[in-house]
Write a protein that binds this DNA or RNA. Structure first.
Lengths: 134, 134
DNA sequence: ATAAGCCTTCCAGTTGTGGGAATGTCAAGA
DNA sequence: TCTTGACATTCCCACAACTGGAAGGCTTAT
């Protein structure tokens, strides 16, 4: 299978597959006579794994660790779980931060009448005050 | 005031102030005889504005637009409000995405017993299945 | 004189791709 | 057979928003 077919099957763009190879996330592909990269089923499976983990917000580096755990058939499931729980904590931190930002923004916009007049508490507060800060 | 004092007063690192100048977010600072950048109260105020807007998740480009709105004393408050509401929508999209990711991760970890045994639904699902997908 | 603590510019690295150029290869149709 | 289109290759640049570091200049105090 050429890189284009793999890209189609996995949803990972060809360019990204080459990048993953370059940074060592996946091993170098076997080359055909013409120099084209050649892939098999395992490669597709691996790239799907990577794609799903990426969609779950794991960094590429994290995905590397997950792949290592995946390949190590003897690791304790506790290790994997700890890793995932850690990532959940990180996601929750980001959610909390965004929610705090959202609250501040809503506070600002609520007090802005939003008509033709120029005075606007949003900019006033950005300029002068601390907005809903701790 | 030298760049270091401004950095201290505003919380924006000196390096970042130079960067903002370079990309045109703030105008080039006046230089003293010795080539040092020199700042006044307005500059501090502007950088505080920028800092607050950045903390509210506005991109640097967005901050540029906010600064323009801020300086244009005659713009309608509706313009500013629309801008902010738009940003709220964007923040809410990001929150929703993260919450969906979080739900998937929790679904995975809940089914992983997390002990010494090697079998782990987290990796199994990443490898084989579509996780809580639409 | 020298040391510390500022300041300056410039260059490179970060994360995870995407775009595009220049070039090579393959399969199919006129 | 020649050409055309759709692939593939490598290489380098760009993005966002900084951050770090090197190499050097200025100021002030000791």
């Amino acid at each position: 299978m050429n890189i284009g077919s793999v890209a189609e099957k996995t949803g990972v763009p060809a360019k990204t597959i080459r990048y993953y190879e370059e940074i060592g996330l996946i091993p170098p592909a076997i080359r055909a006579e013409n120099g084209y990269r050649h892939y098999g089923r395992n490669d597709v499976e691996t790239l799907r794994f990577i794609q799903r983990a990426r969609r779950l917000g794991f960094s590429v580096k994290d995905v590397g660790n997950l792949l290592a755990l995946w390949r190590d058939k003897k690791r304790a499931s506790a290790d994997v779980k700890a890793f995932a729980l850690n990532h959940i904590k990180e996601v929750e931190r980001r959610i909390a931060e965004l929610q705090s930002i959202r609250a501040s923004l809503i506070h600002l916009t609520d007090r802005c009448h939003g008509d033709d007049r120029p005075d606007c508490p949003i900019l006033d507060d950005l300029a002068k005050a601390v907005v809903l800060s701790q």
